[in-house]
């Protein structure tokens, strides 16, 4: 068929423009460098608590940290919406597994001691 119409040069090539996919707040994004790993890093640098008598200020500062972190991670969503989306992601297998890992990292290493005892 191509030869009939002169190698198809005359035919106009239709370009169907694909819509730009909307970025999603999914587990990949949450686990990427800007996601939870970054949160784990910045909380160590940022969180300075004043302690007794400053409860509200301390919590407000903590909330601000979360808000800015979420804004960097996924600028589209408002704070409350973003939190709801992340909370929902927390129910997936993959994230649950990772959460356990993160917690275990912080645990004192009991198991190895017991092993060496035996």
């Amino acid at each position: 068929a191509a030869t009939d119409s002169g190698l198809g040069i005359d035919e106009e090539i239709k370009i169907v423009k694909k819509r730009q996919p909307i970025p999603k707040l999914d587990d990949n994004r949450l686990l990427s460098v800007g996601g939870v790993p970054r949160l784990r890093r910045i909380c160590k640098e940022r969180l300075r608590f004043k302690g007794k008598g400053h409860e509200y200020g301390d919590v407000a500062r903590m909330l601000n940290m979360y808000q800015l972190w979420l804004d960097d991670l996924y600028p589209r969503a408002k704070f409350a919406d973003g939190l709801a989306m992340i909370e929902k992601l927390g129910h997936t297998k993959r994230i649950q597994f990772m959460r356990k890992e993160w917690i275990d990292e912080g645990k004192p290493k009991h198991t190895t001691e017991i092993d060496s005892d035996e």
């Binding site: 949160l39 784990r40 909380c43 409860e55 979360y66 927390g90 959460r99 993160w102 990292e105």
Partner: peptide
């Protein structure tokens, strides 16, 4: 809030867990 602050200082893992 006081208990939250204290707990977060004791166990930094909570910072992530607080999302879920």
């Amino acid at each position: 809030f006081r208990s939250v602050v204290k707990r977060v200082q004791d166990r930094p893992e909570l910072v992530v867990e607080m999302l879920f």
